[in-house]
Computed example of a mutant assay.
Amino acid sequence: MTEQQREASEDAVMTRIGQAIILLHAGDREEARNRLGDIWNEIGEEGPALHRCTLAHYMADAQDDPADELAWDLRALNAADGLRQEPITLPLPQPHSAVRVFYPSLHLNLAADYVKLSRPEAARIHLARARAATDALADDGYGDGVRAAISRLELRLGTGPDADPRPTPFPGQQ
């Protein structure tokens, strides 16, 4: 396979992932989950890290069970870590530094997963990692949205500079 054929094939995978994401955002979680699952079966655990990271990130959003969501978010984080060792064919001047922009959102998602699973300490750890990684975010709508979501979860967990020292209890806690 030539380099051009490989890149075209990778673009086709990202297009298919994008189509499944459109279904997810339109509310068809089951069909999105099915399509993302089919793509995951094709690319597997050893597929390109960018594909695995993107797919796992959105597959987590398509889950109904918080434990399944956590498993997919952990796969996304693992794949993002793999992006550092893998060549990236993105049209960016410094593609490996662009990988850093994934971490605030990935850790925020993990923190939210742990909240759903009533694991506040794990949630706080990932929330702190999300906050620490925000320097990679641009001052744009996406960056502002991620920072705002981090702040909201910090308030809920009683962490961060503006937090109430009396955090909201988790279900089952007094």
Rank of each mutant, 00 (worst) to 15 (best):
G47M: 03
D68T: 06
L77P: 01
L77D: 00
H51R: 13
G82K: 08
A62F: 05
E69V: 02
C53N: 14
R75D: 11
M59R: 12
G37S: 12
M59K: 09
H57F: 15
E42N: 09
P48V: 09
C53P: 04
L55I: 10
L77T: 07
D65Y: 09
A76N: 08
A49I: 05
A56T: 06
G37T: 08
T54R: 10
E69N: 02
A56V: 10
R35A: 00
E45S: 08
D81H: 11
G37R: 00
N34S: 07
L70S: 04
A76G: 13
L77N: 01
A67M: 12
D65P: 06
P66G: 06
G37P: 01
G44R: 01
P66S: 08
D81R: 12
D38V: 07
E46V: 00
H51K: 14
E69W: 00
I39D: 02
A60H: 13
G44I: 00
L70V: 03
N78C: 13
A62W: 02
D73T: 13
A79K: 07
Q63P: 04
E45M: 05
E42R: 03
Y58V: 08
L74V: 13
E46Q: 07
A49P: 06
A67K: 11
A62P: 03
D68S: 12
C53W: 02
E69H: 00
N41F: 05
A56R: 08
D81A: 05
G82T: 07
I43V: 12
M59H: 11
Y58A: 06
L50R: 13
D61G: 07
A49V: 05
A71E: 13
D73A: 13
L50P: 02
L83C: 06
A79D: 10
R35L: 10
L74I: 12
H57A: 14
D64M: 05
E46G: 01
H51M: 15
A60D: 11
Q63T: 03
G82I: 11
Y58K: 06
A67P: 03
L50S: 10
I39L: 01
G47T: 01
A79F: 06
A79V: 07
A79L: 10
M59E: 03
M59A: 15
D68Y: 04
N34G: 00
A60M: 15
A56G: 12
A62G: 09
W72V: 12
R52Y: 03
G44F: 00
C53L: 14
D65R: 10
E46K: 04
A56Q: 04
D61H: 10
M59Y: 11
G44L: 01
A60F: 10
Q63L: 05
C53F: 09
P66M: 06
D81L: 09
W72T: 10
G82W: 08
L36F: 04
H57P: 05
A62T: 11
L70R: 12
G82R: 07
Y58N: 13
W72F: 15
L36P: 00
D73Q: 14
A49Q: 09
